[in-house]
């Protein structure tokens, strides 16, 4: 739809439109969007308007921000990208989970790696209870069962205080 009109605006660059689950449309250069494997395959199949039913506007905005920045990656701005990444993963767990689900669905490997590592670092020292809360998982063990599982690797539950906070 937008592809032919936008090409004229930006010279030879081919444009694509991404549509969020809320119906908002975002126009981007193809060279930026092909970091995303899922979209790359759709482009190869001839699509120029790409509906993303699993990604809402808020998440898509963040993901586009990430893709734009990483499309600028060169040898000389490594430090800048590093700082960008650091800022990018600062949101709440819920925001991170929305992003990681979207990155997984869209197959953006770099973003997937960044988010998974950041979440892993953040839950590294959390207590079991905190991990459950953070991931919104209900405990389906009986107290006896849980104790048994704990006893199988007792040492893993020892060694100092675990973090009970949820952020």
């Amino acid at each position: 739809m937008a592809s032919s009109s936008s090409s004229s605006k930006t010279g030879l660059k081919k444009m694509l439109t991404l549509k969020s689950s809320d119906g908002d449309e975002f126009e981007l250069e193809e060279s930026i969007v092909i970091q995303c494997q899922t979209i790359k395959h759709m482009v190869e199949d001839g699509f120029s308007l790409i509906p993303l039913q699993n990604v809402d506007t808020k998440t898509l905005t963040k993901i586009i921000e990430y893709m734009k920045k990483h499309a600028e990656k060169t040898e000389s701005n490594k430090e800048e990208i590093k700082n960008f990444n650091k800022e990018f993963v600062k949101g709440s767990f819920d925001d991170q989970f929305e992003l990681v689900s979207a990155a997984n669905y869209l197959h953006i490997n770099g973003l997937m790696d960044l988010l998974c590592q950041s979440i892993a670092d953040r839950i590294n020292n959390k207590s079991v209870r905190a991990v459950r809360e953070i991931f919104n998982i209900s405990n389906d063990y009986t107290p006896d069962e849980e104790e048994k599982v704990r006893d199988e690797h007792k040492w893993a539950h020892e060694g100092g205080e675990f973090d009970e906070s949820l952020d």
Binding site: Q117, V128, F135, Y141, E146, V149, E152, H153, A156, G159
Partner: peptide, 14 residues
Amino acid sequence: RLPVNRVLRCRCVS
């Protein structure tokens, strides 16, 4: 991405 002892602890989650 977690070290082994952390992963083992997560067996208790669910």
